[in-house]
């Protein structure tokens, strides 16, 4: 196996008495898209800043692209911070080119690359606009392009979707998909589970600075019991002793939701219904969503995140 693109060992960051990140360990394999999920104040941004060596951890070690210092490999990293901002008076192409030169590109190559990227992502007409004249969505796209202009191996995007309309969210997803297709490693943090569900190869859920889950989306969904939703033709209650069923709840529309135990097979429930000649009007096996996993793991902490 390759060396992981990123490795955190027992990383802790404290501000006085407050612990922002608590003994966090992670390993991000090269070439994967990795989701950072967590409610507000979970320590996502702090962790990303420590990865980038903008701030130093109180304890623990971080290795980025095999190096203990992100600054040593800064040319191979791209970063989009959580709070978005650009030099107001500079033109879109020159901002992108400037950040690319700070990552070691030569000015001529950086300028060419800036124009290429702006054209590819539908901003060709705004290349010469001052960034203060761009809409929020356009400004954010320019910033993402600035983060990836030097074609980094490892891209860190902090809340890349916030503030974007659905069309631009799709463009953002395209950018991430493009990066993956070219074998780049991408870490992004988000509150929106749908993006994580669609994009992530692996994800970590953190809350209050602690890791609650680390693995693939399928593994995440696997942590919740599967559910079966059914409606009886005659009304009434389904039998309580169907195979693998742990509990049942009647939903407001009259359907029943059955929670299955670990390893239970929805097909077995359906077969049992047939065997007992229970007439069904509908039957569906529901996969737990990332949203459910998130809510369950994070619990009360997620209250705020859910409404975003």
């Amino acid at each position: 196996m390759h060396t992981p693109a990123l490795e955190l060992r027992e990383v802790t960051k404290t501000y006085g008495a407050f612990t922002a990140v608590d003994r966090l360990s992670l390993s991000v394999p090269a070439g994967c898209v990795y989701g950072f999920l967590g409610p507000n104040g979970a320590g996502k941004t702090t962790t990303l800043r420590m990865i980038l060596e903008i701030i130093r951890p109180t304890q623990g070690t971080i290795s980025v692209l095999g190096s203990p210092s992100a600054l040593a490999v800064r040319r191979r990293i791209g970063y989009l911070p959580e709070e978005k901002g650009l030099y107001k008076k500079m033109r879109a192409w020159s901002v992108i080119a400037y950040f690319a030169t700070l990552k070691g590109m030569s000015p001529a190559v950086a300028t060419r690359r800036a124009h290429e990227l702006l054209e590819r992502y539908g901003l060709k007409d705004f290349a010469d606009a001052r960034t203060e004249a761009l809409s929020k969505g356009m400004g954010q796209k320019v910033q993402v392009l600035a983060a990836v202009a030097h074609d980094p191996e490892f891209v860190i995007l902090d809340e890349p979707f916030s503030g974007l309309d659905p069309v631009n969210q799709t463009v953002m997803e395209d950018i991430i998909t493009d990066l993956r297709a070219r074998g780049r490693t991408v870490i992004f943090s988000t509150h929106v589970m749908a993006h994580a569900e669609r994009l992530c190869d692996r994800l970590v859920i953190i809350a209050r600075g602690r890791k609650l889950f680390d693995g693939t989306p399928a593994e995440a969904r696997g942590t919740l019991p599967r559910r079966v939703r059914l409606a009886l033709e005659a009304g009434g209650e389904p039998a309580a002793d169907l195979p693998g069923v742990l509990g049942r709840v009647q939903l407001p529309d009259g359907q029943w939701e059955l929670q299955l135990g670990e390893g239970a097979d929805p097909q077995a429930v359906l077969a049992a219904c047939f065997a007992r000649q229970i007439r069904l009007r509908s039957f569906s096996a529901e996969e737990a969503t990332l949203h459910d996993v998130f809510v369950k793991l994070v619990g009360p902490d997620a209250t705020e995140a859910r409404f975003r």
Binding site: A70, E82, L86
Partner: peptide
């Protein structure tokens, strides 16, 4: 503008 973070990376 928080450009500072990009710069410091």
């Amino acid at each position: 503008n928080r450009i500072i973070e990009v710069l410091l990376s």
